[in-house]
Design a protein around this nucleic acid. Structure first.
Length: 684
RNA sequence: GCACCCGUAGCUCAGUUGGAUAGAGCGUCUGACUACGAAUCAGAAGGUCGCAAGUUCGAGUCUUGCCGGGUGCACCA
């Protein structure tokens, strides 16, 4: 039995007792963790609610404390509960049987991360998570990292909470951004597909293809503005973009072939970048297939359901639009959203509705799938394809999700709202609840970080609290540069502390620490908070950081390396023995200030499953990040006390309790960190 | 103008479906190592939770109004 199950049992008891003794049917029984351990392990503030309900139904005024007293006896008969106190105005405070709980917790299996792989017989509703979705025309930047890390961590949380997931990284391979880079290659550099291939092959490791495109894209932007970054775009030059875009949508021509080469190459670069952070995908759905396979079918459904209408006159004459009544229109802004332009092309929002309908199993047509690439751990990521000849018969069953989570920055909340409404209008049976916009705020840089990455700042910018990224000003940080920098910083620390490690090991540890610093930094804030990246803050070991959490786990592990063989098993046997004398002595270990602190650590470690469930339902990875930190903090506090030194402990029972608690804590902490995508190294 | 998000300690932020004395980190000050790993820990100082009403046994949390900040409102994505 874990804490969640016990809580559930106790809730049921309270509910039954309320019905039995007071004739009140409670829909839910809120439970909470008391503010201090002295007040117990679990509290039910249920007597207040009952007093109110009794008064409502019978008019009789009952004192909450008296009600709590009556419920007390009911709860005390539970095996795991040592005693119950009525406190304050009527709180029911429960104290667990510490010896019994320790043996239960010590036996419980660790939360398993990522093992809940799908199988053909899996009946669980599928949670679709789309994240990353970076335009495949240049290197990924720091803002994309927040998207990917939030998305990937959310996937890990869902899996750890027992859910079935499918991870998508949408590839907009026929959009404006790809077209612009193609304009650069074709019109600025006068290159053919063969030239681009040759160029790609000639590029060195420190300036790869995605970096090249990053610069080329900036040059194209400048070209559209006639060479002046502050002037307007020249309509004549923009015609090249439109021509290119048309060629991409038509397909089967040299321009489209070049675009396909660029997009596919950049997708590979993005996958490489994300893979450095342990991020993987199941499927790469491409816009080209959404257009070819889904659009016409989805369009018919949208028309048939009345979700969209044709405008015969007015501002949107000739367009198919989705009416948005709740948004007031004004002279300047039309509230209705255009889905199909008057020239017959589809807007991004239109394609997104079609794609979302497919993800939810509401469009019957299907794509072809081909394996795109397989990583070192034999995980294959698939890609959609229009070419039936490439279709793999062994492709997994994609789509047919029950819920869709789209990790997209908060600036796109309006179009996401349109998509949600559109889907619900076409498929009322899935409704709006099936579409979740997992929005997050932007990432800026601290002035110190910007300068560390080689950006030139004005004196004004240097004095501000953060520097905003700006593509136009060239103020941008490539994800790989950022990760490189983090790894270099950590490498210096590792070299100083463990000069005897092999070069390879040092690099490995530095990499692990860098990933922990970056992922933790991106995850510790709630999603709707703007974050300011700073190397010092991310890589500190004394504050709220990944390395701090790792240090606690590494220290815990080092104890177990020094224990005698079999001692851990012996300790487990001792704490799980039913012997009343032993359990009395175990209970004693948890008494007093020192024991209370140890007990608080134990119950905190026991809350992982509960935290995972909350993080999953709130779609908020920062809950888990905060939990990991507090567990690491509590462990460090307990660990630091001289009285708690395991290896010096002479009393056999106390030693066994310390071993069991620390073993449980390190397991829970490791699971929590694993779920955050942070791996615990042997040394650091 | 309309919609969404945010105002909590000097700074940056947490705060579960409304619950007990509002918490962290940084910064400041004072302490603890020939170490089960000090990349750590302990202690101190620091708050009219933007303002004002309302609902409630109970409000940082819910409602309304105001003040202040951010974002979005294309036949771009």
């Amino acid at each position: 039995m874990n804490l969640i199950e016990l809580q559930q049992t106790l809730r049921e008891r309270v509910r039954a007792a309320a019905a039995d003794k007071f004739g009140v049917e409670l829909e839910q029984v809120p439970a909470e963790v008391p503010p201090r351990t002295e007040l117990g392990d679990l509290a039910f503030p249920v007597a207040f609610e009952l007093a109110k309900r009794i008064k409502q139904s019978t008019g009789e005024k009952r004192n909450p404390r008296a009600i709590a007293e009556e419920l007390r006896r009911e709860l005390e008969s539970t095996e795991e509960v040592a005693r119950v106190e009525v406190a304050g105005a009527g709180y029911l405070n429960l104290f667990f049987d510490r010896a019994r709980m320790l043996s239960r917790l010590a036996e419980s299996p660790a939360v398993e991360v990522g093992v809940a792989e799908e199988s053909a017989a899996d009946e669980r509703p599928k949670r679709m998570v789309e994240h990353t979705s970076v335009n495949p025309n240049k290197a990924a930047h720091i803002g994309h990292l927040r998207n990917s890390v939030i998305g990937d961590t959310f996937v890990r949380i869902l899996r750890a909470a027992g859910e079935l997931t499918e991870v998508h990284n949408y590839i907009d391979n026929t959009g404006v951004q790809v077209a612009d880079v193609v304009v650069g290659f074709v019109h600025l550099e006068r290159m053919t597909l063969e030239d681009v291939r040759a160029l790609d092959a000639s590029l060195k490791e420190d300036y790869p293809f995605d970096y090249y495109c990053w610069d080329l894209y900036a040059r194209v932007g400048l070209f559209y503005r006639g060479g002046d970054p502050d002037s307007k775009e020249d309509p004549e030059r923009l015609k090249l973009r439109v021509e290119t875009l048309h060629a991409l949508e038509e397909g089967d021509n040299p321009t489209a072939a070049l675009a396909d080469y660029v997009a596919t190459r950049i997708v590979n670069c993005h996958l490489d970048t994300m893979s450095r952070l342990g991020i993987k995908y199941d499927l790469l759905p491409r816009e080209s297939e959404v257009l070819h396979f889904l659009w016409s079918h989805a369009f018919e459904r949208m028309k048939a359901s009345g979700a969209i209408r044709f405008e015969a006159e007015g501002r949107n004459k000739g367009c198919w639009v989705m009416p948005m009544e709740t948004h007031e229109s004004s002279d300047e802004h039309e509230a209705d959203k255009v889905i199909v332009r008057s020239n017959g092309t589809v807007t991004y929002t239109g394609k997104d509705i079609a794609y979302q309908l497919w993800k939810l199993g509401q469009v019957e047509l299907d794509f072809y799938f081909k394996p795109f690439r397989t990583d070192s751990e034999a995980h294959t990521v698939w890609m959609t394809t229009s070419n039936a000849g490439e279709a793999s018969p062994s492709a997994p069953h994609f789509g047919d999700g029950a819920t869709v989570y789209n990790v997209i920055d908060s600036r796109q909340s309006y179009p996401q709202e349109v998509v949600k409404r559109g889907v619900a209008a076409v498929a009322p049976q899935v409704g709006e609840g099936a579409s979740v916009h997992l929005s997050y705020e932007m990432v800026a840089l601290s002035p110190a970080a910007a300068e560390e990455l080689g950006l030139e700042l004005s004196t004004d910018e240097r004095s501000r609290t953060f520097v905003e990224m700006s593509g136009r000003r060239g103020l941008g940080v490539k994800a790989d540069d950022l990760i490189d920098r983090l790894e270099e910083n950590e490498y210096r620390e590792v070299e100083e502390r463990h000069p005897s490690l092999s070069e390879e090991r040092k690099r490995e540890v530095a990499h692990t620490l860098a990933v922990s610093a970056l992922r933790y930094f991106l995850l510790k804030w709630t999603r709707n908070s703007v974050i300011v990246f700073d190397f010092k803050e991310a890589q500190t070991t004394t504050g709220e950081s990944g390395p701090y959490c790792l240090y606690a786990a590494v220290r815990a592990n080092s104890i177990f390396r020094k224990l005698q063989t079999g001692e851990l098993e012996g300790a487990r046997r001792l704490v799980s023995s039913a012997d009343t004398d032993t359990s009395a002595r175990i209970t004693q270990v948890f008494e007093g200030e020192l024991g209370g602190e140890l007990w608080a650590l134990t119950t905190l470690a026991g809350r992982l499953a509960e935290v995972l469930a909350q993080a999953a339902s709130a779609a908020e990875p920062s809950h888990l990040a905060r939990y990991a930190l507090s567990l690491a903090q509590s462990f460090n506090t307990v660990y630091n006390r001289r009285e708690n030194r395991v290896l010096e402990e002479k009393d056999a029972v106390r030693r066994a309790v310390l071993i069991s608690v620390f073993d449980y804590v390190r397991k829970q902490l490791t699971s929590a960190l694993d779920t955050l995508g942070i791996e615990v190294p042997e040394r650091m």
